[in-house]
């Protein structure tokens, strides 16, 4: 299982990469492996605003429907609509496949997230 350095992680297996004041959000390698082959995503509209940890989208594998939670609050700048036609990219390259870009409203919310090392330990516990 791959965990990338230098980005943030959540307990619900999203990753967050911050560039300037924009938070790019996707799902981790652990998440895509647990879900299996992803065949559908539903993402929010540009301009919608969400509070931290709100469910903002849906990821569906052949058998299961899962919510996508936003790790940091703010306005949706963009959803990656390329994933509508190629949801399998979330399996193929989870860290290259960002799902939404959020205008980071409160930088202190990043403190609630895990580092790569913390997330690695968290996943080990999850697997037990």
């Amino acid at each position: 299982m791959e965990i990338k350095e230098g980005i943030f992680y959540t307990e619900s297996h999203e990753w967050v990469k911050v560039e300037d004041n924009t938070a790019y959000i996707g799902i981790t390698d652990f998440a895509q492996d647990a879900l299996g082959e992803i065949v559908f995503v539903e993402l929010p509209m540009e301009g919608e605003e969400f509070a931290q940890k709100e469910a903002i989208g849906v990821i569906e594998s052949v058998k299961a429907v899962s919510d996508l939670y936003v790790p940091v609050g703010g306005e949706i700048l963009e959803s990656n609509e390329d994933l509508y036609d190629a949801p399998e990219e979330l399996n193929n390259a989870p860290y290259e496949s960002w799902m939404i870009a959020v205008d980071l409203a409160d930088e202190s919310q990043l403190d609630d997230l895990m580092s790569a090392e913390e997330y690695e330990n968290f996943c080990k516990e999850e697997e037990e």
Binding site: G36, E37, V39, S61, V62, K63
Partner: peptide, 9 residues
């Protein structure tokens, strides 16, 4: 067993 390599495959 629910799957081995993946349901679609």
């Amino acid at each position: 067993p629910i799957q081995y390599e993946g349901i679609i495959q």
